[in-house]
Design a protein around this nucleic acid. Sequence first.
DNA 1: ATGCATTAATAAATTGCACTTATTAATGCA
DNA 2: TGCATTAATAAGTGCAATTTATTAATGCAT
Lengths: 324, 324
Amino acid sequence: MDVNLRQIRAFLAVVGLGGFTRAAGALNISQPALTIRIRQLEDQIGLRLFDRNTRSVQLTRVGQELLPVFQRLMKDFDSAMADIREFSEEPRGTIRVAVLPSFAAGPLPALIADFRARNPRVSFVLKDAVGKRVLAMVRNEEVDFGIGVGGVDEPDLDTIDIFEDRLVLVYPRGHAAGELPLASVPVISQFPLVLMDKDTSVRRLVDEAFAAAGSIATPACEATYMSTAVSMVRAGLGLAILPASAIEIRGFADIATRPIDDAGFVRRIVIIKRRGSSLLPAVEEFTKVLLAAANSCAATPGACLNVEVQDGGAEALAVGVQGQ
Amino acid sequence: MDVNLRQIRAFLAVVGLGGFTRAAGALNISQPALTIRIRQLEDQIGLRLFDRNTRSVQLTRVGQELLPVFQRLMKDFDSAMADIREFSEEPRGTIRVAVLPSFAAGPLPALIADFRARNPRVSFVLKDAVGKRVLAMVRNEEVDFGIGVGGVDEPDLDTIDIFEDRLVLVYPRGHAAGELPLASVPVISQFPLVLMDKDTSVRRLVDEAFAAAGSIATPACEATYMSTAVSMVRAGLGLAILPASAIEIRGFADIATRPIDDAGFVRRIVIIKRRGSSLLPAVEEFTKVLLAAANSCAATPGACLNVEVQDGGAEALAVGVQGQ
DNA sequence: ATGCATTAATAAATTGCACTTATTAATGCA
DNA sequence: TGCATTAATAAGTGCAATTTATTAATGCAT
């Protein structure tokens, strides 16, 4: 019994229009084609559905009993299809992202808020984690994609550059560092430095950049958290080198930042996803938003880092925002 | 979007068996055919359902979300089909029959009881009515079929003979009529007769049979109800001519019956149905039972009229028996 | 690293089946 | 009785689904 949907639709059309010729017209097929479809349906279920002669078409009692069954079936099917269609047309579902803490507390919240304003049926689950964990979570499918530092070269992962996150020199406002004509590695090295812990990606980058410039980064102090490093700078313990995007360096009147004149002090922020794995349409959509933001950033260098963070945005996101 | 059931089945097979080759085998199609079906499905809904390479097939997140939708759809469809299949395999539903009162009170109850014992999901609604009403109810589709007297010749109705209901002579036990060598029309005419009312089909038949035999039926008494006629016979008012199947003539020790030796005293009991109208399978089945009973009757003449009536059978049937 | 085995995708050819047009037969109505 | 309407049938056509053969990719074992 291989009843198919076209047969059922044909049956319903004949019932609805009360005749083969009219129903065939509605279905955009010829009348003989419809006759055959109905006959097939009847043969397959082994029951006559219509009593028909050249002048009238009438449901048999079996047809009457089965009509609601077929109607419900088609209704369910059509509504399921409408549901599915919505899926591809209106992004929805839950987007799970693993993000570096600095990015999660930085530009991301505003982007998410903006995206959710336009796609209210999309919810987000953010997992902030250090670079290695981001990779692992992407790989384990704990998240749909990750936002991490570039330079990963794993065969099963793809990366797409989005931002260039410059490391900047953080110094107390009025400090001599602010007056320097050039903030190059040799110059910076003159001052006591507050550097991040050896395990962080920021420190790794700093070390590499110093090495590339033929120098060695020597910390006066070390910190694990950026906010600690900032406090140290404010206390006059030295100059820090931190991501420009880091939220921790904003909101203090007594510190200032300036770019470092060395191409090495750049970390590429990338989208990381599983190679050959397709994403929820909502996710595709969101990565487009990220890329668009990245492009507008490239057009006006530095501007991308000044994305305003909404009050409370970070907190709301930390627990995941449930849509709908 | 013309998604079809084979595509959905294909999708579920791939999910269930975790690979195209295996799933294709299960569906009895070649692997390329399956690849194409899945691709069609994906194209039509505009969403990728599997991430696949030559070594692995995995649901996308969209696929994961849609899987239960498709599963439910197929489950509903299959169970509806199973339902429909039962319809043709196990008779069920309500059979509505219009029946002559004599037949309704006579052999019918036993036949119904027997049928219901074997087909418990079939219920009956009996409408007892005189010949004309039976025809009308069949024609109006108030009933699925009727059981009435033969000889109707309407263009829109079909009849099938089931019983030959002989009219018999009903006389008080010990009466001279019982001893007659021959109960022919001329002989019967010698006795005072209790005949049915002019409006009844029985009387019509009696009149016709007398006329055919060159005689005229002259009643000593007339009655509208058979039970009245029987009482009259018992009271010695005369001999009655009544259907052998009539329940009213049984159960009295003081009356007896004998066939009338004249071919005219036969009324054909027929099934009456709308021409070109198909019946519920249960109805088809039941008419078969009626015909079978008729045949076994033909094999042992007279026996068919001695069907035992279960206690209370007639009462239960009068209000309609609800199955299930 | 290299080759082998497995598996999905592609290409080309074939088959089958659903559809169309043309016609017939039945039926109600004037 | 003839006309108009409508479903069924017949024959032919074309498209679409399927098959076989092949290719390309990928994991695994050596």
